[in-house]
Design a protein around this nucleic acid. Structure first.
Lengths: 174, 174
DNA sequence: GGTTGCATGTAAAACGTTACATGATTTT
DNA sequence: AAAATCATGTAACGTTTTACATGCAACC
């Protein structure tokens, strides 16, 4: 079976600890979503595919009062995750409507460029703030594993940098 | 008709000067592709849709020895481009396999985090170099319009920053 | 005469989001 | 009793990529 990066989001999540589909989605939404999103429409079919491929296995959770299937990595799944981690990466892309507007801003009024820069700055300020809230909620970096902690530091630095750059540029645009 | 951001890539390009589909693709590939890509499979059908909507018009190019349809904005198309430039933006997203690997690196060997950071740094160094080549090829900023010039400066600063950050972090990871 | 580049276009597949359907349990 | 949350799942839709088909023109 051919795995795509979204499959690895699931393998990676289950590599942290066993979870059900709902929890994967919730976890993605407050972590990887900033650089790799996943929807229910991907997660549930993918859980089935990965099970069929023998990389994960699900067990009906008897402890829970709810209907709940907890998935965990098989030995083959853990090996596959390790292989992927060591392999070179293919995907790195960005889609940014504000950059598009900055690029085409000469077709707008004289303020168009500045407006696009300010809008972009505001977006990144908000995202940095959101990441800082996640950081505080995690009770500082002590209880966080090094990978997520480094990624979070990256996200904050990255968003701060862009917001600063765009604001500075917007000021010079006047 | 409902327009999506890709439609605006085409409107924006034709707002710079009239072009054929092939030229739009070539131009996208050395400019907006870094933050908004477009393939032939999108461009040609979209040129038809925008023509039907009366936002652009195509004319068989008599000057050329080849079969070639040159498209330009209609008045309605230019108005639509202006409206879009002034409107708030919806899309800002990123997919980055190296960040995913950094996030999940605790499931790998002790070098996994550093490897992901170094791979990411290398990618951004390359992209910065590519943008600098585009910058030189444009014969410095004088012949560039302010929008594309600002976007290019952004791309270089952005890629340099990330490469630096990741390299610094990779060193501390040891 | 062969290769590269210009130019238009489409079909199929892959990828992803949105919205909905369903129903149980927990909280207010 | 109502609302929120947990939990699984799918269908429809829209978007994007990939690969191919076609043919002429320019260059070597």
């Amino acid at each position: 079976m051919e795995l795509n990066p979204t499959s690895y989001v699931i393998l990676g999540m289950l590599g942290m600890h066993p979870m059900c589909g709902y929890e994967i989605k919730a976890f993605v939404d407050k972590s990887t979503r900033f650089f790799w999103a996943a929807s229910y429409g991907q997660i549930y079919p993918e859980l089935r595919r990965l099970t069929e491929a023998g990389l994960i296995e699900g067990e009906a959770d008897a402890d829970s009062s709810r209907r709940r299937i907890e998935f965990s990595l098989t030995r083959a799944g853990r090996a596959e995750l390790g292989r992927w981690l060591a392999a070179p990466s293919a995907v790195q892309e960005m889609r940014d409507e504000n950059l598009l507007k900055l690029f085409f801003s000469d077709a707008g009024g004289p303020e168009a460029g500045r407006v696009a820069l300010e809008a972009k700055a505001a977006r990144h300020r908000e995202e940095a703030a959101e990441l800082r809230r996640i950081e505080s909620a995690a009770g500082s970096h002590e209880d966080m594993r090094p990978g997520p902690a480094a990624t979070l530091r990256f996200g904050i630095a990255f968003n701060d940098f862009i917001a600063d750059w765009c604001e500075k540029e917007a000021k010079e645009e006047r």
